[in-house]
Nucleic acid binder design. Structure first.
Length: 422
RNA sequence: GGAGGGGUGGCAGAGUGGUCGAUUGCGUCUGAUUCGAAAUCAGAUGUACCGCAAGGUACCGGGGGUUCGAAUCCCUUCCCCUCCGCCA
């Protein structure tokens, strides 16, 4: 949610920001709804004030007295009017809230102008992907033993498409990756949390999945719970409607969870194997920071994610997402893309974003400055990292001619061996 | 799943229709006292919205209702506790 005062007082600034994002929003309707709401509030509150004063008088009168009776009669109609005005207020507030939810966050000034993902800027590259080209290179799904190691067909039988089984050493490798990501995050100062995988509607709304992306989440309708599309949802909501001590900032947490995404309508040409799944594993990094620090903290967050790929020795590049491709709630966003040498494509494995106060406002997460009123924190999050595509890159980049995959040094402590083969 | 009890300010815990945004205790902050501290004493101490301001309004888990008036009565929903049942 955008600051209503910012919208009211710096409408042009907001309008320009939204235009940069290429979102179509009727800001005038939002402003009008705000106007209507405030008018209704004033009307209701003055009527209520009168009523309260009269009730105070009545409280002091003897119950059966004629003056009491007279006042009672008089207040009966006033009461009806107050009720009506109150209803108007709640209706106006509902409208205002609904249209308010359609207003996206404004992009930071450092976000490059652009329309689509083609306009994203490569701001860094690491490693030399050209060195990986070898005779053995092939997409991971074409590796001879792939179907044995990651069993999509059994997954289809048991659940449906996009819910594979990882078998034997492949399952062990998945576990090693989770362990590696979590240990690295812990070392970087993120406190680990093990979170609920189902959340209620209030939580999904606070982080912005509802109402916009309802169709992308699995919904357990009997109990009205949503299966999390990312750990961001439960982890961020940990502090929902709370006031954090300023001294506790920046607050850093990490969590491993499976993620569930319906991915309705997003299957295209390049979606095969591990590139897109309905259930996948991910470690998420989340920060709650002082507003003055959030853009500096974004750089640190990006660094924390990058280091994970470096230690795995996987070439990657960093994209600064352009204004037209950035998310609804985001102020600034970097994507990390790993090189998959078999597919010869860059695969997104992390998205690091600063939401400024947009998410905190929705979620009611504030901090108390030394002397003064509570203020909204800034929230950030980033994957650290998503598993399947990292796994794909390892399989493709480290594949030897004899079908053996060399396991990166950093994982061996948990994987327990140097190679993978079926 | 069944039966019962309960959700009040940072915490504890009063309040069963009006003068209650709410007694009191603890905690926290400020001041006095002290060389300093402890103890003691005095005062302060929720959040949001509307308003230039004075001030006003809302909030006693959430939503709805009764009433001139609701923390208090009714309905509904969520959560917690106790007991019984079932089960990993």
């Amino acid at each position: 949610m955008l600051d209503p005062k910012l919208l009211r007082e710096q409408t042009d600034f907001v309008r320009k920001g939204i235009a940069r994002k290429k979102f179509q929003v009727d800001l005038d309707a939002v402003l009008a709804a705000d106007e209507v709401r405030r008018h209704a509030v004033v009307e209701f509150e003055s009527a209520r004030a009168e009523q309260n004063a009269a009730n105070k008088e009545m409280a002091a009168m003897p119950k059966g007295s004629p003056e009491f009776q007279a006042k009672l009669l008089e207040m009966k109609s006033a009461s009806a009017r107050v009720k009506e005005l109150e209803k108007k207020v709640s209706e106006a507030e509902e409208v205002w809230k609904q249209v308010g939810l359609t207003v996206p966050n404004v992009p930071h000034e450092s976000v490059p102008e652009g329309r689509t993902e083609a306009d994203n800027k490569v701001v860094a590259t690491w490693g030399d992907e050209t060195k990986l080209v070898s005779a053995a290179a092939k997409p991971h799904w074409d590796i001879a033993w792939f179907a044995k190691a990651i069993d999509f067909e059994r997954g289809v039988k048991v659940t449906g498409a996009g819910f594979p089984f990882y078998v034997g050493d492949m399952a062990r490798l998945v576990r090693a990756l989770i362990q590696y990501f979590l240990e690295e995050a812990n070392a970087a100062g993120y406190t680990e949390v093990h979170a609920p995988l189902l959340v209620n509607a209030a939580s999904a709304t606070a982080t912005g999945q509802l109402p916009d992306k309802e169709g992308q989440m699995y919904h357990a309708q009997t109990d009205d719970f949503y299966m999390i599309p990312t750990a961001e949802v439960p982890v961020t909501n940990f502090f929902r409607d709370e006031i954090i001590d300023e001294g506790a900032l920046p607050l850093k947490r990490c969590g491993y969870t499976p993620c569930f995404r319906r991915e309705a309508g997003s299957w295209g040409a390049h979606v095969r194997g591990l590139n897109r799944l309905h259930q996948f594993d991910k470690v998420e990094l989340v920060k709650w920071v002082h507003p003055d620090q959030s853009f500096a903290e974004l750089e640190l967050l990006r660094g924390d994610a990058e280091r994970l790929l470096q230690k795995l020795n996987l070439p990657y590049r960093v994209l600064l997402i352009c204004s037209g491709d950035i998310g609804f709630s985001h102020s600034k966003q970097y994507d990390l893309e790993v090189w998959a040498g078999g597919q010869k494509r860059w695969l997104e494995v992390s998205s690091c974003s600063n939401f400024t106060d947009f998410q905190a406002r929705r979620a009611g997460i504030r901090f108390r400055p030394k002397d003064g009123k509570p203020e909204f924190v800034h929230t950030l999050n980033g994957s650290g990292l998503g598993l399947p595509r990292v796994l794909a890159a390892i399989l493709e980049n480290n594949l030897q001619p004899d079908g053996t995959v060399i396991i990166p040094e950093a994982l061996r402590r948990w994987y327990g061996k140097e190679t993978l083969k079926f």
